[in-house]
Amino acid sequence: MAEKKRLKNLTFLEKMYIPEIVKGLALTLKQMLSPSVTMQYPEVKFEPPASYRGRPVLVQETNGTERCVACGLCSRVCPALAIEVQAAETELEKERYPQKFEINMLRCIFCGFCEEVCPEEAIVMSKDYELVFQNRESAIYGKDKLLVPVDELKDRIDFLRKFKK
């Protein structure tokens, strides 16, 4: 049998194993004594950075209307077909608004394509990572759950303005 080529030839001491084992044990012992990084989840909550892609939400302007014009690009780009939009006409200047905007959170894969493709900066990824539902129906989020006031999304919008081309 051909001798196997090793990345590195072991020295005698290394071949003895024991010094290496002691090194390993020393490392784990050091780790044992260093402080834990665990967050006690329900009591302490992780505050994600602006780059975090949580639940996609619709931006609600200060006057209460959504920015969305129901162009359907998010729906088209969504690789998981999670978004359904039904447009309708509005008297507002934007002409179109989403009469129905539904995201099926069971389908959503949090890829953020919808946010990336949105021409109106109307759908953004929020910091919300707590998604709980007990049946398929309630996993479909309508406008009532999706609309979030623009002030609460400032972090993400600033982030997008800085990095989204």
Binding site: T28, Q31, M32, S34, P35, V37, T38, Q40
Partner: peptide, 10 residues
Amino acid sequence: KIAAWVQNRK
């Protein structure tokens, strides 16, 4: 517990 400590957990 020790597993947790080694892995910086609680």
